[in-house]
Each structure stands twice: as C-alpha cells, then as structure tokens.
C-alpha cells in the first residue's frame, strides 16, 4: 500500500544551489517569421512562452503545455515541432515560422489558410494555427499522399470541435492543387 500520508504534505523545497532569484538572461538570436531578433531569455523559457508572453505573438496557442495536443506547433528550421517542449535557449540561431508568418506581406493568405477557410476546417479556431503549421510541415515532408496518411500524420493535432474530416479535405485540396510552396 502506498504511503497515503504523502498526500497530506505538499510543496517542494526551494532550489538550494545557484542560481538564486532571477538568474542572468542568456543572449540568443532567433529569426522569427523572417525577422532576425536578438533576445535575452532565461533558461526555462520555452519557445511557446517566449512567443506568447514576451513577444506578444499569440497566434501560437497553448493547449496543454505538455506536447499532448499540437496547438503550439510551429516550424523550426522548416520542421514542425511542439514549441511548448522546446526551451528557447536550446534553439539559439534557429529560424522559426509561426502562423503569423504564413501569409504574404501583402496579406495574401497561404494556400493552406485559404483551404482551411474554404473547407470550414475549424470551429472555435484555437487549434487552428497549430493545425495549419502542422499541415504546412506535412506538405514539406512529402510522406503523406492519401487521406489515410494525412490522418495519421495529422494526428499530433487535436481538435476538440471535431473538424478532422474538413481538415483532411483542406489538406487534400492543397496537395491536389500542388500549391505547396
């Protein structure tokens, strides 16, 4: 039997060793949506929190903060990753594309964004930036051709509103049109 008395005590001791208090921030550079930025980050800041909390780029969503939902998907050096599980300091020098960086400077939507609107591939919209970044990553990877493959390769993006079939329609449409960049 487990020690249920354990439950009656809660909380951790503060970290004993260095660094005390607010540690020095570490300088890094990131190219975010084409713009090179010199930033100072604390070691525990994730890419997701950096984007949202520090840079006010709220397009990238926090849906679980644990790599379980895909809402925070961004393209890191062209590959899709969960930004919630990436410490910013470890990505020094990388190139990052978020949903804010997909449309053209003139506001022309990326074909995937267009397709999502046309196929009604979202409802509440909260998973949508992650879905779209993920789908753009999927196009580049080139491993998914059939609906079945799209479904499997998009399974890292949860949609609680249940827009899955429309998401697959949208991606299939973009694939068919060969509109991938």
């Amino acid at each position: 039997m487990a020690d249920l008395e354990f439950l009656a005590r809660q909380g951790f001791a503060p970290d004993a060793g260095p660094p005390k208090g607010l540690p020095d921030e570490i300088p890094i550079t990131l190219t975010i949506n084409g713009e090179r930025r010199a930033l100072h980050v604390r070691p525990w800041t994730t890419l997701l929190d950096l984007l949202r909390e520090d840079l006010s780029l709220y397009g990238t969503k926090k849906g679980c903060d644990h790599g379980q939902c895909g809402a925070c998907t961004v393209l890191l050096d062209g590959e899709r990753i969960n930004s919630c599980l990436a410490l910013a300091v470890t990505k020094d020098g990388s190139e990052l594309t978020t949903v804010e960086g997909l449309a053209g400077k003139d506001g022309t939507l990326h074909p995937m964004q267009e397709a999502f609107i046309e196929h009604d591939a979202f409802q509440c919209g909260y998973c949508t930036p992650g879905q779209i970044c993920s789908a753009v990553g999927l196009l580049k990877e080139g491993h998914a051709k059939t609906r079945e493959e799209i479904r499997e390769m998009m399974s890292g993006n949860l949609c609680r509103c249940g827009a899955y079939t429309n998401i697959v329609d949208a991606i299939e449409d973009v694939l068919a049109k060969g509109a991938a960049k």
């Binding site: 949202r52 006010s56 780029l57 709220y58 397009g59 990238t60 969503k61 926090k62 978020t98 949903v99 804010e100 997909l102 449309a103 939507l109 964004q113 999502f116 609107i117 046309e118 009604d120 979202f122 919209g125 909260y126 949508t128 930036p129 779209i132």
Partner: peptide, 21 residues
Amino acid sequence: RNRVDGRLKVTGEARYAAEYT
C-alpha cells in the same frame, strides 16, 4: 457561407481570454 471570422482564425489574429495584455 464561409465563416466571417475565418481569416482571423487562420492567421492567428483571433484573440482568446489569455491573449489580452
């Protein structure tokens, strides 16, 4: 009809409760 808020949602401009500062 396509959603009138579609563009805001696919571009990440739609703001949710924790996204106001």
